[in-house]
């Protein structure tokens, strides 16, 4: 029994020496060699990195091809937001469109996860490659709709929610959305 322990202890020590020589020394050498490997660092801001179009940076609200606000204040972005940094209130214009009365993103809380964009059924909220959003005052990181809304369509040029959904708005009557037949005449006797 005691020899067994001694043996195993000795084996342990041997393994330790071997390990030190092979593993540790080899890794020291391998890391040392990196002195001659070119660095990956990009010298921002002199050297501007290429930002991929689907980079998750500054959040914008876009407009549909007709130039109207795409956001219909459905609240899905707000509920998808893991840090609860989106707050908005629905209201309605005389055309029957829903739109946000206010739309607020607290960028001091935002983690740029892009869940809001993923949740958005109208492609209104989009993340852009802009990441230069630092402010000296935290209060300045609270963005309202006026700050978020852009004049263009963003990444998705064709998307137009009201042309697909069945809700009638001014300029698009019942039956004029995609794949719709004209409204039923209830008083007709025809099948």
């Amino acid at each position: 029994m005691s020899t067994l322990i001694k043996k195993s202890l000795f084996a342990k020590l041997l393994a330790l020496v071997k390990d030190t020589l092979t593993s540790q020394v080899v890794s020291l050498w391998k890391v040392f060699r990196h002195l001659w490997v070119a660095t990956d660092t990009v010298q921002y801001p002199e050297q501007q990195p290429y930002m991929f179009p689907r980079w998750r940076g500054r959040i914008i609200l876009t407009r549909d091809p007709e130039g109207e606000e795409r956001c219909v204040a459905c609240n899905l972005c707000a509920v998808a937001c893991p840090v609860d940094c989106i707050a908005l209130q629905k209201t309605e214009d005389e055309a029957g469109r829903w739109y946000p009365e206010f739309f607020r993103i607290n960028f001091s809380r935002c983690i740029m996860c892009g869940f809001c964009e993923e949740a958005c059924p109208t492609n209104a909220i989009q993340l852009t490659p802009d990441f230069e959003m630092a402010e000296y005052k935290r209060q300045d990181m609270v963005w309202e709709k006026e700050d978020l809304l852009i004049s263009g369509t963003g990444k998705y040029h064709e998307s137009n929610f009201y042309r697909v959904s069945g809700k009638a708005i001014k300029g698009k009557d019942k039956g004029e959305a995609r794949n719709e037949s004209s409204p039923v005449d209830v008083r007709s006797l025809l099948p």
Binding site: F32, H34, D40
Partner: peptide, 8 residues
């Protein structure tokens, strides 16, 4: 450390 980690 930077050089060894391929940084500047």
């Amino acid at each position: 450390l930077g050089f060894w980690q391929d940084r500047l």
